[in-house]
Amino acid sequence: MQTTLMIYDGTAPADSDVPRTGGVPLAPAGFEWPMCDSCCGGPLQFFAHLPVEDGVLSVFVCQNEPGACEFWDATAGANRVCLFFREGLRPVAVPETGVTLLPATSAIRTHVVTLDPEVNDDHAEVAPDAYDLARSGWKRGPEETFGKQREVLGSLGGSPSYLEDDRLPTCPSCTGAMEFAAHLEEGISARTAMNLGGQLGYVFICRACREGAFLTD
C-alpha cells in the first residue's frame, strides 16, 4: 500500500514550473483568470500548481468573503480546477482587485510511503486509510519520535481519504465519474496556508474531457 505524500520544501519562485502552492498560475495563451460564480463574483485565489502525468493541475478557490461563497462544494462555482497540457504555459496576468494570491510560494517535494497492511488491526471495523496512515506517520528520519504532519501539504493519486460516495463529483461534460488526483492540506503556517476552513481538500479530474473539480470534507 503506497501513498505519494507532498512535503513542504521551502520557498520557490512564484512563476516556476515545479510542484508548489502559491505563486502565479501558468496557463496557455488566452487563459482568463477564473471568477467566482457562487456569490461574490470576484476573482478566485490561486492555490496550487501541480504537475501530473499528462499535464498541470491549477487549483483556484474563492477567498474574497470566506464563508460566504461555498468553496467547499464541487458544483457551487466558488472554486475551479484546470488541467492544462504542459506545452506553451506562461505566467498569467493577476487581477488588480480581489484576493488572488497566497502570501508565499511553497515548493513541494514528493515522498512515497509504503505501508504494510499486515501491521494494521485485522479486526478494525473500518479499513485503514492509506493517506491518513502515511500522513500521521511522516517523519524526517527514522530516529525521530514525533511526526511532522504540518509539513505534509497533501498527496498525489491514490484514493480520497474518508470521502463519502455521495460526494464524489461527476464530470460536467460527460457526466462520468471523475478520477481522484490529489489531497490538499492547509500548510505549515499562516503565511503559507491555503484557507480550507480547517478541512481536507480533494482534487478530481476527468482526463478525457480535461475537466477538474474541487471540494473539501
Score class of each variant (00 low, 15 high):
61 V>T: 09
62 C>R: 04
62 C>Q: 07
62 C>G: 10
63 Q>F: 04
64 N>E: 13
65 E>K: 05
65 E>W: 07
66 P>I: 12
67 G>Q: 05
68 A>K: 06
69 C>L: 06
70 E>M: 09
70 E>G: 03
71 F>G: 01
71 F>H: 09
71 F>A: 15
72 W>P: 01
73 D>M: 09
74 A>E: 11
75 T>N: 12
76 A>P: 03
76 A>K: 05
77 G>M: 02
78 A>M: 08
80 R>E: 15
80 R>N: 14
81 V>E: 01
82 C>A: 14
82 C>R: 13
82 C>V: 14
82 C>H: 13
83 L>Q: 05
83 L>E: 04
85 F>L: 11
86 R>L: 07
87 E>K: 12
87 E>I: 01
88 G>P: 01
88 G>W: 04
89 L>A: 04
89 L>N: 03
90 R>T: 10
90 R>H: 09
90 R>K: 13
91 P>F: 08
92 V>A: 01
93 A>L: 13
93 A>H: 11
94 V>W: 03
94 V>I: 15
95 P>N: 07
100 T>V: 15
100 T>G: 01
101 L>S: 12
104 A>N: 09
105 T>R: 10
106 S>D: 05
107 A>L: 10
108 I>Y: 06
108 I>F: 12
109 R>L: 13
109 R>Q: 14
109 R>I: 14
109 R>G: 10
110 T>K: 08
112 V>D: 13
113 V>E: 15
114 T>V: 14
115 L>E: 14
115 L>I: 09
115 L>F: 04
117 P>E: 08
118 E>F: 08
120 N>Y: 14
122 D>S: 12
122 D>Y: 04
123 H>L: 05
123 H>C: 02
124 A>F: 01
126 V>Y: 00
128 P>V: 13
129 D>F: 00
130 A>C: 05
131 Y>W: 13
132 D>T: 07
133 L>G: 06
134 A>V: 05
135 R>H: 11
139 K>I: 12
140 R>P: 06
140 R>M: 07
141 G>C: 07
142 P>H: 05
145 T>G: 00
145 T>Y: 03
146 F>C: 03
147 G>S: 13
147 G>N: 10
148 K>H: 12
148 K>V: 10
149 Q>Y: 00
150 R>C: 07
152 V>E: 02
153 L>Q: 06
153 L>V: 10
154 G>S: 08
155 S>D: 08
158 G>S: 08
159 S>R: 06
160 P>G: 09
160 P>N: 11
160 P>W: 08
161 S>A: 09
161 S>I: 02
162 Y>P: 00
162 Y>C: 01
163 L>K: 03
163 L>Y: 03
165 D>W: 00
167 R>S: 06
167 R>Q: 13
168 L>R: 15
168 L>D: 01
168 L>A: 07
169 P>Y: 02
169 P>D: 02
170 T>R: 13
171 C>R: 05
173 S>V: 08
174 C>V: 07
175 T>Q: 12
176 G>M: 05
176 G>I: 01
179 E>N: 07
180 F>R: 03
181 A>I: 05
181 A>N: 05
182 A>V: 11
183 H>D: 08
183 H>G: 10
184 L>I: 15
184 L>S: 02
184 L>W: 02
185 E>R: 14
185 E>G: 02
186 E>I: 06
187 G>H: 06
187 G>E: 03
187 G>R: 05
